[in-house]
């Protein structure tokens, strides 16, 4: 009697042990599978990103030595401007301080390196930041970078829109005196899109996390008002 009960108990213990073992194995394998999925997902992201980076680019005329921006003027003090053609704060900055910067350049006190970064591609449905920046490279080739940049800020499309079409960019270029055929094919071909990527990545590497960013002789300028910029340039020039 007691031995039969003992056998039953033993059988139950074995059954429970086997069931526990099975559960343990199942948990182990689902965990291994889930970890593999997460690791593979991360590697996919990394390789997609690595594949998207192009390391060959054509440099437009008038670019700085490292090809990270377009140079305007030849003064002793360098003003680096990091701006996105879609960024409303950049437009405000241009309206507020653009005149002062032009003056500093024409007085021969400063030279501007304008970095047309494409930080806000997600804020238009057509990658307007990249297209506009690449088009500005085309305008630099035609010697009208400054004029084209001013015109683009004047016609700045709102964030979240499709932005200006390539045709509109070409019309604006022709409007500031660029050769419609040369400029047009450069814009349509997206000739300077790899350059835009280079400019953008260089800015990220330099710690530029937002636009507009202004540096005078490599130092961040917090006060972006006309007075602030003039003061920073004069301090740097001394």
């Amino acid at each position: 009697m007691s031995s039969r009960k003992g056998q039953r108990d033993a059988a139950r213990v074995v059954r429970e042990h086997l069931a526990r073992e099975k559960r343990r194995k199942r948990t182990l394998w689902t965990s291994v599978g889930a970890v593999a999925v997460l690791v593979i997902a991360g590697l996919i992201g990394w390789s997609v990103w690595a594949g998207q980076r192009s390391d060959e680019f054509t440099t437009p005329k008038g670019a700085s030595d490292a090809s990270t921006g377009i140079v305007i003027g030849s003064g002793a003090v360098t003003i680096d401007l990091y701006e996105d053609y879609l960024c409303p704060a950049c437009k405000q900055f241009q309206q507020l301080s653009g005149g002062t910067i032009n003056q500093l350049v024409s007085e021969g006190k400063a030279r501007v390196v304008f970095h047309p970064v494409a930080y806000l591609d997600r804020l238009s449905t057509t990658g307007y930041s990249t297209r506009a920046s690449a088009a500005s490279g085309c305008a630099a080739d035609g010697g009208k970078f400054k004029e084209f940049t001013d015109a683009l800020f004047e016609r700045q499309p709102p964030e979240g829109s499709a932005g200006l079409s390539n045709q509109e960019l070409i019309d604006i270029g022709a409007g500031v005196g660029l050769n419609r055929d040369d400029f047009g094919s450069c814009v349509s071909d997206g000739r300077y899109k790899p350059w835009t990527e280079h400019v953008t990545e260089d800015a990220s590497r330099a710690g530029v996390t937002g636009t507009p960013t202004v540096k005078v002789n490599g130092k961040d300028v917090e006060d972006r008002s006309p007075d602030g910029i003039r003061a920073a340039v004069e301090a740097a020039g001394r």
């Binding site: 997460l38 997902a41 991360g42 590697l43 996919i44 992201g45 990394w46 997609v48 990103w49």
Partner: peptide, 8 residues
């Protein structure tokens, strides 16, 4: 680059 894919 990896983060969005891990999140998905």
């Amino acid at each position: 680059a990896a983060l969005p894919f891990v999140e998905l």
